[in-house]
């Protein structure tokens, strides 16, 4: 197996290559506005650093959010195109699961905790975990200030928690998910025969769309002539 993993659902544009036993190479750039510019060069860099060819890839794993939509879609559509052109499967991983997995790997948490990323507009994307591999609630999107005390009292990882220290009582690292953790999480689940997610965005919200307070029809209009 040679699995390419990446995630663009947070300000971290992160790419890693995993060969079933270990991470061969990785690259992470923090830039909330340039996912579209940084991801593809990051993929090429990681393949080159590992000395592997794109044709050797057997699997793609991509973070499917939740996350700000514009950046999130960059990762997912890139994964879909790579998978389509190379004829290999594309697996989805909840970005918060990758962040939680990274927290477990880095041993910043032991028991139950919450992972949170920035959803802008005073909101966070969040999920609650019993341990680094076990999500028990979420993913959801809520105003940081509206979260239940049973959630905010837990140790919290991620930039979404760090942004709202008044809401989260016990903020820890890591700040962002990284693709090395995402890759290890995906490899572990695939090896255990467990399902991953479809490569589709976890938007959690319906699109913002206002129906304009438009004109009323001024006259009863039938179908156009010749229609």
């Amino acid at each position: 197996m040679l699995l390419l993993a990446f995630d663009t659902a947070t300000p971290a544009v992160t790419v890693a290559l995993h060969d079933d036993s270990r991470v061969l190479a990785g690259s992470t750039r923090i830039d909330a506005r340039r996912q579209g510019e940084l991801l593809a060069p990051g993929i090429v860099d990681v393949l080159r650093a590992a000395g592997r060819a794109r044709a050797e890839l057997t699997d793609i794993a991509v973070g499917v959010g939740p996350g700000p939509y514009t950046g999130l879609r960059v990762g997912i559509v890139t994964a879909l195109a790579l998978g389509d052109a190379l004829g290999i499967p594309v697996h989805g991983v909840c970005t918060l699961d990758a962040l939680a997995y990274a927290a477990g790997r880095d041993a910043t948490v032991a028991g139950p905790f919450v992972a949170a990323t920035d959803a802008r507009r005073k909101e966070v994307y969040w999920a609650r975990y019993d341990d680094a591999h076990t999500r028990v609630e979420g993913p959801s999107v809520d105003r940081a200030g509206d979260l239940a005390a049973t959630v905010t009292a837990l140790p919290a990882v991620g930039a979404g928690a760090a942004l709202y220290p008044d809401s989260f009582a016990d903020v820890r690292g890591p700040e962002h998910p990284d693709a090395a953790a995402l890759a290890a999480f995906a490899v572990e689940r695939l090896a255990a025969g467990l399902a991953l997610l479809p490569p589709e965005p976890l938007y959690l919200r319906r699109p913002d769309a206002q129906v304009p307070a438009g004109y009323k029809a001024v006259t009863p209009v039938g179908p156009p002539p010749g229609a």
Binding site: A40, V74, A79, A81, D84, A85, L86
Partner: peptide
């Protein structure tokens, strides 16, 4: 902007893969 980005990212994906 957001619509363009989907196409540009897809094109890069195909370009890298092929």
């Amino acid at each position: 902007a957001g619509a363009l980005l989907v196409g540009v990212a897809a094109a890069k994906g195909y370009s890298v893969a092929l």
